[in-house]
């Protein structure tokens, strides 16, 4: 199988192997913090921070870690970066930290991160792992952005806190509630598969 170019390595995270829409990973935070765009972005950035740095570290020291203790080591490395991100946010962005609540520490069990270490960073060069992590991060942020935009717009008529839809629009409160999160993601997943199927048929 021909090795992917650096560009392809990055781009796959955005669509073909999008962590949320195609790999169905990292759903817990995707549903939980997308009630407002600012929360989605903050979570996306925090997760990217952890993913990129963890991938860098794991790829750098992969030869030193014996196979049997690799999962434990990855977990400690990931947990360290998560703690750093969590503390940093609590110290310098308290309102967002409060809004995201327990979901920042939960990044440590975000399957996307451990998944990438296991599937990629432990088997590829530092450079490629970095690009892979960046691609996955971008894909994740895009997914969060999409979901939170829909939810905030329809659920409150605002975007990033700014009133976008006028007085005439009666917000669909359900969008802000858990139910709205599930339903929206379900529909988006269906849409993603639909597009995928159409383009496959187009090529075949």
């Amino acid at each position: 199988m021909p090795a992917k170019s650096i560009g392809q390595e990055y781009m796959k995270g955005l669509w073909a192997e999008n962590p949320v829409f195609r790999q169905l990973l990292g759903m817990c935070p995707t549903l939980a913090v997308t009630n407002a765009v600012i929360n989605g972005i903050a979570m996306g950035l925090a997760t990217s921070f952890v993913l990129i740095l963890s991938s860098l570290v794991v790829a750098s020291i992969k030869k030193l870690i014996p196979n049997q203790v690799r999962i434990a080591s990855y977990i400690v490395i990931i947990a360290t970066f998560v703690t750093i991100a969590d503390r940093f946010m609590a110290a310098f962005f308290p309102p967002i930290s409060k809004a995201l609540g327990p979901y920042v520490p939960l990044i440590v069990v975000n399957c996307i991160i451990l998944g990438r270490q296991e599937a990629f960073a432990s088997k590829n060069s530092v450079g490629r792992s970095l690009v892979d992590a960046m691609g996955m991060s971008t894909g994740f942020i895009l997914a969060l952005l999409l979901l939170s935009s829909i939810r905030e717009l329809l659920g409150a008529g605002t975007f990033l806190g700014y009133q976008v839809l006028g007085e005439w629009f009666k917000p669909w409160i359900i969008m802000i509630l858990p139910a709205g999160a599930f339903i929206t993601l379900g529909i988006l997943l269906g849409l993603a598969l639909f597009i995928e199927m159409k383009t496959q048929r187009g090529r075949a």
Partner: peptide, 23 residues
């Protein structure tokens, strides 16, 4: 179930309706 929604898609929508009920 429509093809694209099979699996995770419909499961999430069902979860949404359940969440609504639990509210």
């Amino acid at each position: 179930v429509p093809e694209p929604l099979k699996g995770a898609g419909i499961a999430l929508i069902v979860a949404g309706i359940m969440a609504l009920a639990f509210t």
